[in-house]
C-alpha cells in the first residue's frame, strides 16, 4: 500500500532553537500512529508542519505522493488533512452546528452535501442534542467532540489529533478511543500526539518518539517501552 504521508527530513527553527531537526516519518493509509516525546520535543511543531500552520525551513512534506510543503493550511484541508489543536479550540460565540458546518462549507461547495456531512459528523461524535448550544455551555468532553466533528466533517484521509485525551476522565477517554477505533476501522488514518501513554499504547500500531526535535524511535509500542533511549528520555529510567 502506498504511503499516505511522508515527512522527508523536515527541519523547523525558531531563532536559535531547532524545534524539529531533520525528522523523517512515513505514514501508511489506514495506520494509527502515535507521536510521543517529552515536553518541548517538537511533537506539536511537527503536527503544525504537516497541517501547514508552520512552513519547514528544510525538507519536504508529501501527501499522497504530492509535495504539499508550500500549501497553506486550508489547501491541505481540501486535500484531506485535518487536525484538532492542543487544548480546547473552538469558535466561542458560534453554536456547535456552525462550529462544524463552517468547515464543511469551506470544502464542499454544495450546501446540501455540507449539511449532510455536518449531520453525519455530529451523529458520529454524539452531538446532535447540542447542535444549538454555545461551546461555553458544554463540558470539556463535548468540546473535544466538537473539535473532532469539525475535523471529520471535511472528509479527511488523515486526521492529526494533538492531545485528544487531555482533561478527560477515563470513561470519556474510552469513548474517544471507541470513536477513533471505529473510524480507523473504516480506513481513516490518524496521527495522535498524547502524553497519556497507557491509553495511547493500547490503540496505536506504531509510535514515533521525538526528543529535542530529533526522532529517536520508530516502531511498535511494545518495543518503544523496552527501548533504552526512549526509557531514558521519556520514562526517566536511567
Amino acid at each position: 500500500m502506498g504511503k499516505l504521508l511522508i515527512c522527508d527530513n523536515v527541519t523547523k527553527r525558531f531563532g536559535g532553537l531547532v524545534a524539529v531537526n531533520r525528522v523523517s516519518v512515513e505514514v501508511s493509509r489506514g495506520e494509527l500512529l502515535g507521536l510521543i516525546g517529552p515536553n518541548g520535543s517538537g511533537k506539536t511543531t511537527l503536527v503544525n508542519l504537516i497541517s501547514g500552520v508552520l512552513a519547514p525551513d528544510e525538507g519536504r512534506v508529501l501527501f499522497e505522493g504530492r509535495d504539499i510543503t508550500k500549501l497553506k493550511p486550508h489547501e491541505r484541508v481540501a486535500l484531506g488533512i485535518s487536525r484538532i489543536f492542543q487544548g480546547m479550540r473552538v469558535y466561542p460565540y458560534l453554536p456547535v452546528y456552525y462550529n462544524v458546518e463552517l468547515s464543511a462549507r469551506s470544502v464542499f461547495k454544495d450546501a446540501k452535501l455540507a449539511r449532510s456531512k455536518t449531520i453525519w459528523a455530529l451523529t458520529t461524535t454524539k452531538l446532535l442534542a447540542e447542535t444549538l448550544e454555545l461551546p461555553a455551555n458544554l463540558t470539556p468532553y463535548k468540546i473535544k467532540m466538537v473539535e473532532l466533528a469539525r475535523a471529520l466533517v471535511t472528509n479527511p484521509k488523515l486526521v492529526l489529533l494533538d492531545e485528544p485525551f487531555a482533561g478527560l476522565s477515563p470513561e470519556e477517554v474510552s469513548e474517544v478511543i471507541e470513536i477513533v477505533r471505529k473510524l480507523n476501522g473504516n480506513g481513516l488514518t490518524f496521527i495522535i500526539v498524547e502524553h497519556k501513554l497507557r491509553y495511547l499504547m493500547k490503540i496505536v500500531g506504531r509510535v514515533v518518539v521525538l526528543n529535542e526535535g530529533r526522532k529517536i524511535f520508530d516502531g511498535a509500542p511494545s518495543e518503544a517501552v523496552n527501548n533504552e533511549e526512549v526509557s531514558r528520555v521519556y520514562f526517566g529510567v536511567v
Binding site: A78, V90, Y91, P92, L102, R105, S106
Partner: peptide, 24 residues
C-alpha cells in the same frame, strides 16, 4: 450567510479558521 459566519470565525479564531479549511 455561510460567508458571514466565515467572517465571524476569523474574528473568533483566525488560526482555527485557517486550519479548518477556510481560505481566510
Amino acid at each position: 450567510s455561510d460567508f458571514g459566519f466565515m467572517m465571524r470565525s476569523i474574528g473568533q479564531d483566525e488560526l482555527l479558521a485557517e486550519a479548518s479549511g477556510i481560505d481566510t
